[in-house]
């Protein structure tokens, strides 16, 4: 399995505050990787470092085998859609395409025009007057038409209404499949990721809590409920991710490769969202509050 992104003890400091610290991560190629975590977990910083928008303070990061942002060739291989999908408000849609054409050697003019036409965007329209959804689509078009090998999206759909978000992610999926792109996508909306990602990484406090293929994760995590008792009564070989207790009952989220047959426990499947929350929930009550915000 080759990697699109590898980080070793990666750190980034803003002033005296570490936004990302001791982050070691490995993202496989050929997947749509979802990066999820509470606000302030360092997702955005990690992706900016991967896009070469920032230089690391500590550690190292390799994207597609090269140092991010170091050379025009490296930049050409990576497409980056920033948070809030910024575009030049004063430039028209056509001028954005011209910008892309002038600044990218691998620019696919036909594809860009075709996408703009399919989206129904008027080339003479100023980008500042586009709706949020249209702006995001324009930013995505700019990124896709440079024909990258890896597409990085930092909360691309956060500001969009549900319909626009759905459409945006739909387009993203189609493009990724059509051009065999690797995609890394961050979001705090697990429902979005559930729809598009086949690989998931949960990042809390710069640390990778769990990483793996979505279907594999869902197959190996279970919610077990039963009368209140200690976790050591749980089947051997399992790993307790989170635990909650009421007066008479205990609920655990367990990771285990083997099936659970103990009749004392009620075993049920987890949704991806529950799984993510369980990993965010591992932390103390303060963390729990953040996780609830994420859920809301």
């Amino acid at each position: 399995m080759t990697s699109v992104l590898q980080a070793q003890a990666l750190g980034k400091k803003y002033g005296r505050r570490w936004a990302l610290r001791e982050c070691t991560i490995d993202m496989p190629a050929g997947h749509v990787v979802g990066l999820v975590g509470p606000n302030g977990a360092g997702k955005s910083t990690l992706l900016k470092l991967a896009g070469g928008q920032l230089e690391p303070t500590a550690g190292g990061i390799t994207v597609l085998g090269g140092r991010p942002g170091s050379t025009p060739a490296q930049l050409a291989k990576v497409g980056f859609v920033a948070q809030d999908t910024p575009v030049y408000a004063g430039l028209t849609v056509a001028e954005h395409l011209r910008l892309g054409e002038r600044l990218n050697p691998r620019w696919d003019e036909g594809m860009a025009r075709e996408r703009i036409a399919r989206l129904g965007l008027d080339p003479a329209h100023r980008a500042g007057k586009l709706s949020g959804g249209q702006r995001a689509q324009l930013a995505l078009t700019l990124c896709l038409a440079k024909r990258p090998d890896l597409l990085i999206l930092d909360e691309p759909a956060a500001a969009l209404d549900p319909l626009a978000r759905h459409e945006f992610l739909q387009h993203l999926m189609e493009a990724a499949a059509e051009h065999k792109l690797s995609v890394v996508l961050s979001s705090h909306l697990v429902s979005d990721l559930e729809r598009v990602c086949d690989y998931l990484i949960v990042l809390v406090d710069s640390r990778v809590q769990i990483a793996g293929k979505t279907d594999h994760l869902l197959a190996t995590h279970h919610r077990v409920t039963g009368p209140r008792r200690d976790p050591d009564r749980l089947p051997a070989g399992g790993h307790v991710v989170s635990a909650r207790h009421t007066d008479g009952q205990s609920t655990y989220v367990v990771r285990t490769g083997a099936p659970i047959h103990d009749p004392a426990w009620t075993v049920s499947r987890l949704s991806l969202e529950d799984l993510v929350l369980a990993y965010m929930d591992k932390r103390d009550a303060e963390r729990r509050r953040v996780a609830l915000e994420v859920r809301g």
Partner: peptide, 10 residues
């Protein structure tokens, strides 16, 4: 962030 991701160094 848009212009820095074109194939041109900062």
């Amino acid at each position: 962030l848009l212009v820095w991701n074109q194939s041109i160094t900062r």
